[in-house]
Design a binder for these strands. Sequence first.
DNA 1: TATCCACAGGAAATCAGGGTGT
DNA 2: ACACCCTGATTTCCTGTGGATA
Length: 435
Amino acid sequence: MLKNHNNHNQFNIDKFYKNYLKGPRIFSNRDALESSYVPDTLPHRDVQIKNIAEKTACALLGDTPPSFLCYGQTGTGKTATIRYVSQKLAHQSAKIKPWWIYINCNVVSTPYRILAHIYNTISRCEKIPPTGLPKDIIFKKLLGLLDSIVGNSICFLVLDEIDILVNRKGGNEILYNLLRLNENLDKCKTSLIGISNKLKFREYLDPRILSSLGEEHIVFPSYDASELRDILKERSKIAFLDGVLKEDIIPLSAALAAKEHGDARKALQLLRKAGEIAERAQNKFVTSKHLEKAQEDLENDHIKEYIKGMPLQAQLVLTSIYLLSKFSPDHIIISGDIYDVHSEIRALIPGVRQLTKRRISDYINELALAGIISAYIKSMGHYGRTKIIKLDITNELVDKVLCGIEKIQMILNHKPILLQKDKVKLKNNIFKKLI
DNA sequence: TATCCACAGGAAATCAGGGTGT
DNA sequence: ACACCCTGATTTCCTGTGGATA
């Protein structure tokens, strides 16, 4: 077992800080690489800016701007463009100050909370409690608030990741209600802006909603490598000190991000991470070595965070898959096995209840969606139809993350009983031939 | 070629836990 | 105390199904 490094000298924090301050500097303003940063110029988004500006311009005259949708993959500048336009619009009008309320439907994910969020953003004093009230009461209160506080101005409701909302129950209803807010308002006017990265979510949309959101929508195409380069150049001028980036860093990051549908957010993250790695290593320059490391880290960080954030039961499902692949690498994992192992290990942890196969099946799908495992359905004839599951990340990575979870840590060396059963071994051998 | 396994996965119901106003 | 609200997790009930085997 690993021993703690007790015999080491204690970490001298004062000395560390002093050295840090003396050491080479990399960043001048690292915030410029955050996705929340709104730059002065948005390269290659002229068409979209113009389009949104045209749609929202009438707010300056006190008219109601139309509601509309924005599409584009992640990191194509949808949110940034809207923020950009909203800033410009605010500068333009001294008299009418439009309200902009941003709602990420992934975070504020239920009808109740959306209404409460809007209300609480506008209201200075009285707040809506996080739960408890009937929705229609809040809706009425919101109407009153809009007329009294927003008054004769415009209120833009920006619903980010609107597709998530639509797929949930009550999603269509709340959208419909938000879209016809204007009918119930005397003074204030509202306009809804939906942002989505899935085109096909319109199919699930109520036709009434679709028509009020307008037939046309603004499309944000993915950036290509050269466009990404322009963006990175702009931002790195602000974010990094002069000359710390080696010549090829920007084109390299751009090329890497371009491979993934031209995700600018990813490109910026890559650059920031590379800078941080260089900084931590006390290097004067950011080199392609740092970039390579950054890419690896970023991927792992993302997965680690995701796993840590999963509910315990989901983590246990992952643990089951991990144990199977750890103790028997050539075992073909099927959903039934996962169910059995889950039942086995959950009994080892106090307070964790038994789940049904149905539920486990959902968790497996979630893991697959997150890219942690891959799963596909295969029919084994008389052995039934099942899902074949494979871990997509290394055992080491899973082990590392799960070790950090107190309740799971102690069962990471538990060999599933299932693997010792002759019947299972036999069946598994047949499966191997069938695949 | 009919059979039948071991599930997949949709829809609706249920439960528990956070709250409300009266 | 009581009736009721909203949500998220889970269960219950259900119909559907690819293909090796008898």
